[in-house]
């Protein structure tokens, strides 16, 4: 998968060369931008990673305290409060609002909780343990705060992880596939154009040589002709046509074989 095999299938023309060069510029710019994006995402990712670890730790503590306070509430108010709680569920008082945060073009979800309506006080009217139940409720609300924070961090973590992977894949694809291919195509077109130029040059040379030879031949012919003319003129002055002289000789040669011998 190297060298000549990896190039686009194009017609080697000057126009195509220009188009390829433009594409190479585009690919380079895209590569630089994506690299920057990947870096930005990685920075964000690291931050979230740190936050997740610390949030997980604090989650452990918060859950422990809330479990303790529930046990306290149960101890004070009697074990049957859980049945009362389970039966009194109507609509959620604590709800989640989700919105998006945009980090380098990646949309990260962000949760925040809010309490909807009045806090239910129907349990505090019980005979015993109202104080403890209130404390327990407070502890669990605090736990929810931490958990909601953790949830949004965790979701961001997963989303960012995916986004970074995709971006890196694109960066690598541009760097290792698209750009070499375009570069190969450019060098192929350049080679091909050079070859054409050499061919053209050679053809021109050839034609020039042919022309020169032709001219020389004509000149030689003209010279010969001029010499003949001259010879004719001279012989005419002597009274014999040079052609007839030729003829005389040749006719003699034909007819009388032994004119001399």
């Amino acid at each position: 998968m190297s060298g000549q095999t990896q190039r686009l299938n194009v017609v080697p023309t000057v126009t195509m060369l220009g188009a390829m060069k433009a594409r190479l510029v585009g690919a380079t710019r895209g590569h630089a931008l994506l690299k920057k994006k990947s870096d930005a995402l990685t920075v964000q990712f690291r931050q979230i990673l740190k936050k997740i670890v610390s949030a997980k730790e604090s989650m452990g503590d918060v859950m422990k305290t809330s479990a303790f306070s529930l046990t306290e509430a149960k101890y004070v108010a009697g074990d049957n409060i859980k049945h009362i709680v389970l039966e009194n569920v109507q609509t959620a008082a604590i709800k989640i609002r989700s919105r998006q945060e945009n980090i380098a073009g990646v949309k990260l979800p962000k949760f925040e909780h809010y309490s909807d309506g009045e806090t239910k006080n129907d349990l505090t009217g019980l005979a015993r343990g109202g104080q403890q139940i209130q404390l327990c409720r407070g502890a669990y609300v605090k736990a929810i705060e931490v958990l909601v924070e953790l949830a949004s961090l965790q979701t961001s973590f997963l989303t960012l992880d995916e986004a970074i992977k995709t971006t890196n894949r694109r960066v690598n694809a541009l760097e290792n596939v698209v750009k070499p291919r375009i570069e190969n195509t450019i060098s192929y077109i350049k080679g091909e154009l050079d070859e054409l130029e050499r061919e053209d040059f050679f053809r021109l040379k050839k034609i020039q040589g042919y022309k020169r030879r032709e001219i020389e031949r004509q000149r030689a012919n003209a010279k010969l002709f001029a010499e003949e003319q001259l010879a004719e003129k001279v012989s005419l002055q002597k009274g014999v046509s040079i052609s007839s002289a030729h003829n005389l000789l040749s006719a003699a040669a034909e007819k009388d074989e032994d004119i001399i011998f």
């Binding site: 409060i81 389970l86 008082a93 239910k120 327990c136």
Partner: peptide, 9 residues
Amino acid sequence: VGFLLAGVG
């Protein structure tokens, strides 16, 4: 039960 007490139910 704890979370229901806080009001997520």
